[in-house]
């Protein structure tokens, strides 16, 4: 029994993960409820020794009406990753800020606040990061219509619309290839 399989049993006993599986050989992924995220991460960090925070990412599940926050941590001695996921409501997108656990979470949360509009309660510095003077809805949300925005704000160069469209050009070949 490898280290990650043992860890999986421990996690299943300690928390109530919904999906606990191995997407890759050295990666354990599990989905927990909102209140268990801090506990799971601090267990991984302080007890198991996942000392390095890799990244925080956000996935927009538009059909479910949820945002999924993904925390990835790395164990420098065992050379394995763990992925803690949680789903928050899309309408009232709020989550607790975890910047006190790893300081680099600050930057990730600031970016997710800007690009997805998730409000992180207790974050010390939620202010514009990459976008300047942005007035529309957060652009990384899936219901943000980029083409509509472009038509409103930018001018097209003439002739572009008559140029060949790769989708039409390779369409049949692509469909055949996909059937295989």
């Amino acid at each position: 029994m490898s280290y990650l399989e043992e860890l999986k049993v421990k996690i299943e006993n300690m928390f109530s993960p919904e999906k606990c599986y191995f997407p890759k050989e050295n990666l354990l992924s599990f989905l927990v409820s909102n209140s268990e995220v801090r506990g799971a991460l601090s267990y991984l960090k302080d007890v198991e020794g996942f000392k390095h925070f890799v990244m925080l990412s956000c996935v927009d599940w538009l059909e479910e009406g949820k945002f999924e926050l993904v925390y990835i941590v790395w164990h420098p001695e065992k050379k394995v990753n763990a992925m803690v996921k949680t789903k928050i409501d899309r309408e009232k997108a709020e989550f607790q800020s975890l910047h006190d656990m790893w300081r680099q979470i600050c930057t990730y949360e600031r970016e997710i606040w800007e690009m997805f509009g998730v409000n992180f309660i207790g974050h010390p510095r939620l202010e514009p990061f990459i976008l300047e003077d942005w007035k529309d809805m957060p652009p990384m949300r899936r219901d943000f219509d980029t083409l509509h925005y472009v038509n409103e704000h930018y001018e097209w160069r003439e002739g572009r619309e008559e140029s060949y469209k790769p989708r039409d050009y390779i369409g049949e070949a692509f469909d055949e290839w996909r059937k295989k």
């Binding site: 943000f144 472009v150 160069r157 572009r160």
Partner: peptide
């Protein structure tokens, strides 16, 4: 820079530089 290229529908890239 000519017509947006592969960023033709990107929300923060300009399409015509000579404007």
């Amino acid at each position: 820079t000519i017509n947006g290229g592969m960023y033709w529908d990107s929300y923060n890239t300009i399409k015509k530089l000579d404007l």
